[in-house]
């Protein structure tokens, strides 16, 4: 475990906590895309099936349980909690997210490191995670008033991906045979999707103005 990965995991954890804080404490999910949250729930459910087959560390298992639990509870909150559900921007959150799932599954069947059930699902989760933020970015662009928590949530998620890239560079130079092209390329694509958001986020921060994405 290097400092970049730990920082990346902690940033990821912080993003989930920010979102849970908003939903649980303020009872609002305004500006949060349910489509993205559903995709993340699928991502974690398919990636962390190896909880049952491989053990790496207590840390690893605990974090997997946290990400599984939080992603499913966020989806349930948004769908079934009366007050939270009322604040959901249903009319704006119209991205056809199921159309992302099938191409990712096909790509995972075609391009993978090993053709086993768990490995193909793991690869599918990498491809799906790379594009899962798209509905959220589209929703942000449509939302007139992006509140601070939603902006911070997306910023932390993007930060987590950026830190993971530093982690891969570090591991490549310090660990022999650490080469994972599929993970790297999907991670890079995922991080690039945030580039635009990061630009406007830093602008709003610098000018001390409310975050607003151009339509």
């Amino acid at each position: 475990m290097n400092i970049f990965r730990l920082a990346g995991d902690m940033t990821h954890l912080a993003s989930v906590l920010v979102l849970l804080l908003k939903i649980h404490t303020i009872k609002s999910c305004a500006g949060v895309s349910l489509k993205t949250q559903e995709l993340y729930a699928i991502v974690f459910a398919t990636r962390y099936l190896d909880i049952f087959t491989s053990f790496y560390s207590i840390y690893n298992t605990l974090m997997k349980l946290v990400f599984l639990g939080s992603s499913f509870s966020i989806v349930l909150y948004m769908k079934y909690h009366k007050t939270v559900h009322r604040s959901y921007d249903r009319e704006q959150d119209t991205f056809r997210h199921w159309f992302l799932v099938l191409p990712c599954l096909l790509l995972a069947l075609l391009i993978h490191e090993k053709f086993t059930f768990l490995e193909v699902l793991w690869t599918f989760s990498l491809y799906l995670e790379a594009v899962a933020i798209l509905p959220q970015l589209v929703l942000l662009q449509r939302t007139r008033n992006i509140d601070n928590l939603t902006g911070q949530y997306v910023f932390l998620l993007g930060g987590y991906r950026g830190l993971y890239i530093l982690n891969w560079i570090y591991r490549y130079f310090t660990e022999p045979h650490f080469v994972h092209w599929i993970t790297w390329i999907s991670g890079l694509v995922q991080t690039l999707l945030y580039a635009d958001f990061f630009f406007y986020y830093s602008q709003s921060w610098k000018n001390n103005k409310k975050l607003q994405l151009p339509a």
């Binding site: 990821h12 190896d50 087959t53 790496y56 690893n60 974090m63 990400f67 490191e113 993971y164 993970t183």
Partner: peptide
Amino acid sequence: QDKPQNHDEL
């Protein structure tokens, strides 16, 4: 051959 891939990252 049947050993699972090492996925130690999250």
